[in-house]
């Protein structure tokens, strides 16, 4: 993966994310919860994209664009860092 989730970041089933390093909290939608969990299990972005396509009704081009945007946001919020 180009970027990696910080090790102390966890997400609850209903999409609540708490960053113990800053005290900030966030809300993520269901697909965001899946992605955050897959980021922990899989090594490459391609694998995460594959998982999304298998689970959701969507094409890979759209997923790639949206995932890129989502990862940028995670990085922006300092929940993830360059691998």
């Amino acid at each position: 993966m180009r970027i990696k989730l910080k090790s102390n970041i966890a997400v609850s089933d209903n999409g609540f994310v708490f960053d113990p390093a800053t005290g900030d909290s966030y809300s993520v939608n269901p697909i965001g919860v899946d992605i955050i969990r897959w980021m922990k299990t899989y090594d490459t972005e391609a694998e995460v994209i594959n998982q999304i396509i298998e689970t959701y009704d969507i094409d890979s081009k759209t997923v790639e664009k949206d995932l890129y945007d989502f990862l940028n946001l995670l990085q922006n919020y300092q929940l993830a860092e360059n691998a």
Binding site: Y26, I31, T55, Y56, I58, L73
Partner: peptide, 14 residues
């Protein structure tokens, strides 16, 4: 059956 896709999004809770 595949789930309906929605763009992933994260928002701050302020």
């Amino acid at each position: 059956e595949k789930l309906r896709y929605e763009r992933p999004v994260i928002t701050t809770l302020n």
